[in-house]
């Protein structure tokens, strides 16, 4: 356990020294502010750009619009940024050979993977918490969000989906030991999920549902029970990918 926390401390120190903390805090704060901002300003901008005289009947933005922006920006922009940030977790060490000495000192290989994954989870939690809280605060200030359903459950869906993508990235990054390996594998995985989503039957279990369902959860068109299978499957797959990574790394030449 000592070893685990020792290496975890190193991961933390490294992430701060390589500006990951700074980037996550700044970028996800920006995203958090952008959501309500975009929701509020879009009708105004549309009005300005319309030719004079056009009569527009634009509805006033609501709390839902703000959250729709959240579920558009965070999965698209936020998750991409996050994967990019943590896409070199393993390859950086493997390429430089910084693990060789520590492994011969008796560092358990599973510790390497689990601490790195745990560190990424911590950062993802921070990222989601930040942009969620900021969007929540602005939305609460400008609009009434009491009509929205399952606000927190919807956010947890996105959070869980992020955990899976991070695990896939970590596996790809370890398996191919190149900075682009993880990104590529995750990208291909996403395409796979999108292709699966073409078939309506997959709706009940596709992990991608977790990223696309939140708006419907908010309006009440979907209930948490509807994404239950996706939820569990995503958690299960996450675990599978972490275990696969550990198993692979145990036999890897460093």
């Amino acid at each position: 356990m000592n070893q685990w926390f020792g290496f975890f401390k190193k991961e933390w120190f490294e992430s701060v020294k390589t500006y990951k903390l700074l980037l996550v805090v700044v970028i996800f704060s920006i995203l958090g502010i952008l959501n309500p901002f975009t929701a509020k300003i879009t009708p105004v901008l549309l009005e300005q750009f319309m030719p004079a005289g056009t009569i527009m009947d634009l509805p006033e933005p609501t709390a839902l619009d703000s959250w729709l922006q959240f579920y558009k920006n965070v999965p698209q922009m936020g998750l991409v940024v996050f994967i990019l940030l943590f896409s070199t977790m393993m390859s950086k060490e493997l390429e430089k050979g910084t693990l060789v000495i520590l492994l011969t000192k008796g560092l358990r290989r599973s510790t390497v993977i689990t601490t790195k994954y745990m560190m990424a989870i911590c950062y993802w939690t921070l990222a989601i918490l930040l942009s969620f809280t900021i969007t929540y605060a602005y939305t609460a200030f400008y609009w009434d969000q009491s009509t929205l359903q399952h606000l927190f459950f919807a956010a947890s869906c996105l959070y869980i989906f992020g955990l899976l993508l991070i695990a896939v990235t970590l596996w790809g990054n370890t398996y191919f030991a190149t900075p682009y390996g993880g990104i590529l594998v995750t990208f291909i995985g996403m395409i796979g999920l999108f292709i699966t989503a073409i078939f309506p039957q997959s709706k009940s279990w596709n992990p991608l549902e977790l990223a696309t369902a939140p708006p419907q959860l908010l309006t009440g068109d979907l209930l948490p029970a509807d994404v239950f299978v996706s939820y569990l499957l995503t958690l299960g797959l996450t675990l599978v990918f972490v275990v696969l990574t550990v198993v692979h790394f145990k036999r890897k030449l460093v």
């Binding site: 390589t18 970028i27 940024v81 990019l84 896409s87 070199t88």
Partner: peptide, 11 residues
């Protein structure tokens, strides 16, 4: 905006 610094610091 913000992708620039990210790419710089990471890659």
């Amino acid at each position: 905006q913000f992708i620039g610094p990210l790419v710089y610091f990471v890659f």
